[in-house]
């Protein structure tokens, strides 16, 4: 009897959260899934992602770009984060401040910064013009996007790495060294495994952010199609709502899968780390 009352109470308490979940998550996703299947091609909109070269190439390009940005960010941040955590020097706080600055910029501003750096009137262009006579411009290519994404990915990852590096047990490194391990071996066998959970989780966030980044792509992408841009043009220019919806779902699915995978991997490595 009291059990039943408790269950009713629980259901009542859960109701608001459930309502929000249905209203803001299930319904829109459901609508999206329906919209994707209700175009002239029906369910074939999904197949078009693979058969239509434009969609397929943009999908592959987006995944490759995001993966590349993620790997580069992780490599950079593991080194810099460890260094910043372990060394105290004048200007350290300022340096950390500068490195985390991009957190406060919207994507459009990051895109703008890349144009100022590598655009037609950019710094690199002027420099190369003066030095070699030909202007190096890469702001509007994949390279420009890569730089922009890297720029706004670094702060998220470096802060996580620093927090994790702070918790590493220095005794482990000393134990490994006493057993004869070189700096390289200590890094490979002790430091990186210790940072792994942090690298996995921040790497997954970095990948997800890059997959869905729009502002920077919108500012820079005149020659390139990344998935969010394709969705935008399908939706606004071609009014191909079904295709836009199908692409949106695929984009979400890939990102979600990577996040889930990273969470599982990080979870098991955390468990192993005891």
């Amino acid at each position: 009897m009291s059990d039943m009352r408790e269950n009713t109470l629980l259901a009542l308490l859960l109701a608001p959260a459930l309502l929000v979940f249905v209203a803001f998550f299930l319904l829109p996703i459901g609508r999206l899934a329906l919209a994707a299947g209700s175009g002239p091609d029906g369910i074939m909109a999904y197949a078009a992602i693979l058969t239509d070269a434009r969609y397929r190439e943009s999908l592959i390009a987006t995944v490759l770009l995001s993966a590349g940005v993620t790997l580069a960010t992780l490599a950079l941040c593991a080194v810099c984060g460890l260094f910043l955590e372990r060394n105290r020097f004048p200007g350290r706080a300022v340096l950390i401040g500068i490195m985390t600055l991009p957190l406060s910029f919207p994507g459009v501003v990051v895109g703008f910064l890349v144009i100022m750096l590598a655009g037609r009137q950019g710094l690199i262009g002027d420099l190369t013009q003066a030095l070699t006579g030909s202007k190096l411009v890469f702001a509007y290519s994949m390279a420009g996007l890569f730089i922009g994404y890297l720029y706004f990915s670094i702060p998220r990852v470096i802060l996580t790495v620093m927090a994790s590096a702070e918790k590493l047990d220095r005794r482990l490194e000393e134990a490994a060294r006493s057993l004869g391990a070189s700096t390289f071996a200590v890094t490979r066998d002790v430091i990186l495994p210790g940072l792994l959970p942090a690298l996995l989780s921040s790497g997954a966030i970095c990948f997800a952010t890059s997959m869905g980044a729009f502002g920077t792509a919108f500012t820079l992408a005149t020659n390139i199609d990344v998935l969010p841009m394709v969705i935008y043009t399908e939706f606004t220019l071609h009014a191909n709502i079904a295709m836009a919806a199908a692409l949106s779902l695929i984009l979400g699915l890939i990102t979600w899968a990577v996040l889930a995978l990273a969470r599982t991997a990080a979870g098991s490595s955390v468990a192993a780390a005891g």
Partner: peptide
């Protein structure tokens, strides 16, 4: 440096490698 001195160390906090098994720890050196 310590890695060239061939000394064995035992710490208060054990300092075992959490990513290796018992046998893996002992085999490390």
């Amino acid at each position: 440096p310590i890695e060239k001195r061939n000394v064995g160390m035992v710490f208060q906090s054990y300092a075992l490698f959490p990513n290796m098994s018992v046998a893996g720890n002992i085999a490390y050196g």
